[in-house]
Design a protein around this nucleic acid. Structure first.
Lengths: 139, 139
DNA sequence: GTAAAACTTGGAGTGTGCTCCAGGTCAAAC
DNA sequence: GTTTGACCTGGAGCACACTCCAAGTTTTAC
């Protein structure tokens, strides 16, 4: 939201390939996120090529955190819209984050329960193998 | 194509709808899993309708655990093939489970890191709101 | 015995989140 | 100043994990 669209001063201004490198996303995915409205329109060179500012990077990294914790694209779109709408949406964003945080806590708990059950199964197999170490040699 | 397939005695023998109810999977998904080879062919009535035995239920529940911890269908297919191949594959299955368990541990760690970062963001927003409690009343 | 509900199959369709492509423009290196 | 590689857009295509459908059969309830 600087000017119409010009690049602000002398910020780092990374190319899409550099951002891809740093985030682990592909250039295609970066363009897809922008099209999908997860990212506000990135500043361009006079030749219409994207140049990412440090703030864009930070926002991308936040989005990645949401993604890695299982937030859907459509929820991220919603969050991005709130963010774009300005300071009056802070409490809505907080609500979204708290909800997401709770879901996350629950899914971590669920994973830990399943991990414990897996450990049991693994121990069971280990016992089996310890009792019959070689199947190749019949009695 | 029935026989070679008859129902064993007087086991519980649940219908597909009952298994769907108990596992939370849809009947379509249960049939899909069977077609995909995640489940061995389920016993049938003389009229060709599926009747699930207790062992089928137990296997399904194990599959669900793998699924919930992020194992792909194709990996589950692989595991199911090993299982169908009999006791000589126990050590291969153990290897798969250990690998999966390690991936799971790493993804739990990652989720916890992200959860901590989310907590920071949430606190930041809470502070913001505490400082400017009402935006509705301009100064 | 019959009507309604549940089940069967093979195959097509769907939502999500990318990923690839064609045809063209732009930037960097020489 | 020209070549080479990076980038642009709109749109098609893809992998995954289901989900739905049509047309027919079986089971259950009465």
């Amino acid at each position: 939201m600087t000017d119409g669209n010009a690049l602000p001063q002398r910020e780092p201004a990374l190319t899409i390939a550099q951002v891809a490198e740093q985030t682990g996303l592909s250039p295609d995915t970066l363009r897809y996120y922008e099209r999908a409205g997860l990212i506000e329109r990135i500043g361009r060179t006079t030749g219409n090529q994207r140049r990412y500012a440090a703030a864009d990077l930070a926002w991308l990294e936040f989005l990645l955190r949401l993604r890695e914790t299982g937030m859907s694209i459509s929820d991220m779109q919603h969050y991005a819209q709130l963010r774009a709408a300005g300071d009056t949406t802070v409490s809505d964003r907080l609500t979204m984050l708290r909800d997401h945080r709770q879901n996350l806590a629950e899914s971590i708990r669920s994973l830990r329960r399943n991990a414990a059950a897996l450990d049991k199964k693994i121990k069971h197999y280990e016992t089996l193998l310890a009792e019959q170490p070689e199947m190749d040699t019949p009695s």
